[in-house]
Design a protein around this nucleic acid. Structure first.
Lengths: 202, 202
DNA sequence: CTCTAAAATGACTAACAGTCAAAATATAAA
DNA sequence: TTTATATTTTGACTGTTAGTCATTTTAGAG
């Protein structure tokens, strides 16, 4: 019991420090870019010694990897949480709600999209998200499969359909949001959503 | 006349040096990664002084941008050239031929896909490719619109359809080729091509 | 209060980016 | 050819940075 208490405390403290470094880095990376941010900058701003940084991360690119996963996960999790508050019943509508929620969050937070950029992908989410998931929250994949099973849609391969929806969405919206090219995001949305609906037709 | 000859010569020489730096960097970047390659490494390997590097590029990330565009352009141009040798008449088949050609090239050259990675996109191709295009070659976009006009397909917005096809393809194949996830590329291809065909149905 | 182990520190070294005065080279003029 | 001028290349130099590690500090257990 005491042992558990102790290690819990230590983990909390480590998490706190890791988090401080992650959030300070995020602030600096989005302000000056990762290549113009030194480890000295980060540790000075975070109020820890330089050596401490290297206790938690291999280098700043290693930290960047964690940061991308953390921010992506947050985005997906927020979207799922928000969906649960709505009373949508249609499966297709639910999927589009999630995508729309994420787009709207990114539109309001351009620093975030510039940072996670083209790295907000199924690959990142699926492969790495477990690294920082401590609880049994419902992930996007699990939710999708669950909802799909309850619907009367029949897809050849639901995993692959989800993969293509996430990849198409995340790779197309970046340029629309940041450059308005080939179209501003609001004009692009109908094309994207039509394509997603098609994909869900099996 | 002499004036033209002179400036042509100078441009040739500059191009030669730029190219030498680009190709040397590509070799080193794909071997050790850009963040483990120093400008000293590049110039030593290329046989020029360090200062020369900074006459042609702002820094190594600037060089990387040129390199991504150069390699992407090469890939698209090769695909178009190869298509012209075939006697395909169907528009949809032509589009899939291009995508298939690019995938096969990337499968054979994993260093290339790891380098251009998720940066092989419509955004890069469309925005930056003119920077290094010296002649009037037929680009992918021009070709697509030309072929589309000659076909009897009617799309709501052909530019956006091309955009989505390129983005979906380039973002999905990366993980399939490098990690065999969510499927090995050869198993994934049918799903992708089916989706592209659907997109071209208007 | 003391002991032990884990965590944090920051001075240090080697490597690096980017600069710039000087040298080398190419072109034009005489 | 020779000389003058403009352009390109050079690499030694300076300040900055990454990553290390012997030492100090902190936290918990007895």
């Amino acid at each position: 019991m005491i042992g558990i208490k102790k290690s819990k405390k230590i983990i909390d403290k480590k998490e706190l420090k890791t988090n401080k470094l992650l959030e300070t880095s995020f602030k600096l990376f989005t302000k000056k870019g990762i290549n113009n941010t030194s480890v000295d900058d980060i540790t000075k701003e975070a109020g820890v010694a330089k050596g401490t940084f290297y206790l938690y991360f291999k280098d700043k690119y290693d930290l960047q990897d964690y940061l991308i996963v953390k921010k992506s996960k947050q985005l997906f999790d927020d979207a799922i949480k928000s969906l649960k508050k709505e009373s949508i019943t249609d499966f297709k509508e639910k999927v589009i709600y999630i995508i729309d929620y994420i787009i709207n969050k990114l539109v309001k937070n351009k620093l975030l999209i510039k940072f996670i950029s083209r790295n907000l992908s199924w690959g990142v989410y699926h492969d790495k998200v477990n690294l920082i998931t401590s609880d049994n929250e419902l992930g996007l994949h699990k939710l999708f499969i669950e909802e799909y099973t309850n619907s009367n849609i029949k897809l050849q391969n639901p995993d692959i359909t989800l993969y293509m929806i996430i990849e198409l969405s995340s790779s197309t919206i970046y340029s629309c949001i940041t450059n308005n090219k080939p179209l501003p995001i609001n004009e692009f949305k109908p094309y994207l959503y039509k394509e997603i609906e098609r994909m869900l037709e099996g």
